[in-house]
Amino acid sequence: MKKNLLSLAMSLALLMSAAAQAQTTHIKVTVPFEFAAGNVQLPAGKYEVEAMGPWGGPALSVHNLNSNAGSVVLSSSCRSQKPTAHAKLVFYHYGHEYFLAEVWNRNSFSGSQIKINPRQKELAKNRSKDEVVLIASEN
C-alpha cells in the first residue's frame, strides 16, 4: 500500500512539473518588421506571446502591446538537441514577407512550432527561406 502511494505521489509530482513547464510561455519581444502569425498580418512593434489555457497547450496568443493587433495561432511541439540559451522567436523570411515559425522559452529543450499558413506554403514552393531569430525577454 505504501509503495503504491509513493508511486502515485511521484507520478503526480512529475505531471505537475510538466504542467508548470508548459505554462511558462510568456515572453515579450520587439519585432522590427511586419509579419504573419497564422493567417493574420501584424505590424512591427512590441509583442507579448503567451500560451493559452491552464497548462499551456497548442494555442499561443500573439498580441501587440501598442495596439489592438493580435492573433491566436495553433502550434505543435518541437525539440532541440540542447536547451536554448535565451527565449526567442524564429521567423521564416521569403523575399519581403516574414512568418512567425517558432517560439522558444529560455533553458528549454522544447518549443512551439507554428502551423504553416497557405501563403507561406505558396512562397515556399518557389523561394528559399531565411531564418530570422529575435531574442525575447521572459516574464
Results as ranks from 00 to 15, higher is better:
Met1Lys: 12
Met1Trp: 09
Lys3Gln: 15
Asn4Tyr: 13
Leu6Glu: 15
Ser7Arg: 13
Leu8Val: 08
Met10Cys: 03
Ser11Asn: 12
Ala13Cys: 13
Ala13Pro: 04
Leu14Asp: 06
Leu15Ile: 14
Leu15Lys: 11
Ser17Asn: 13
Ala19Thr: 10
Gln21Asn: 11
Thr24Lys: 10
Thr25Val: 15
Lys28Arg: 09
Val29Pro: 06
Thr30Tyr: 04
Phe33Pro: 06
Phe33Gln: 13
Phe33His: 15
Phe33Lys: 11
Glu34His: 09
Phe35Ile: 05
Ala36Trp: 15
Ala37Asp: 08
Gln41Cys: 02
Leu42Ser: 04
Ala44Gly: 06
Gly45Lys: 12
Lys46Met: 09
Lys46Pro: 05
Lys46Asp: 15
Tyr47Phe: 11
Tyr47Arg: 03
Glu48Pro: 03
Glu48His: 12
Val49Asn: 05
Val49Arg: 04
Val49Phe: 06
Met52Pro: 02
Met52His: 03
Gly57Gln: 09
Gly57Met: 08
Gly57Arg: 08
Pro58Leu: 05
Val62Lys: 05
Ser67Val: 02
Asn68Gln: 10
Val72Gln: 07
Val72Leu: 02
Leu74Arg: 07
Ser75Pro: 10
Ser76Val: 13
Arg79Lys: 14
Ser80Gln: 11
Lys82Ser: 15
Lys82Pro: 04
Pro83Thr: 12
Thr84Ile: 00
Ala85Gln: 15
Ala85Gly: 04
Ala85Val: 13
Ala87Val: 09
Val90Gln: 01
Val90Met: 00
Val90Asn: 00
Phe91Ala: 03
Tyr92Cys: 02
Tyr92Met: 10
His93Trp: 12
His93Pro: 08
Tyr94Glu: 06
Gly95Met: 04
Phe99Ser: 07
Phe99Glu: 07
Leu100Ile: 08
Glu102Ala: 00
Asn105Ser: 07
Asn107Tyr: 10
Ser108Val: 05
Ser108Arg: 11
Ser108Met: 07
Gly111Ile: 10
Gly111Gln: 11
Ser112Val: 02
Ser112Tyr: 14
Ser112Trp: 12
Ile114Lys: 04
Lys115Pro: 00
Ile116Asp: 11
Ile116Glu: 14
Pro118Tyr: 07
Arg119Asp: 06
Arg119Thr: 07
Gln120Cys: 08
Lys121Pro: 00
Glu122Tyr: 08
Leu123Ala: 01
Ala124Glu: 11
Ser128Asp: 12
Lys129Glu: 09
Lys129Ile: 01
Lys129Tyr: 07
Asp130Thr: 13
Asp130His: 13
Val132Phe: 04
Val132Gly: 06
Val133Ala: 03
Leu134Asn: 01
Leu134Met: 04
Ser137Pro: 00
Glu138Gly: 08
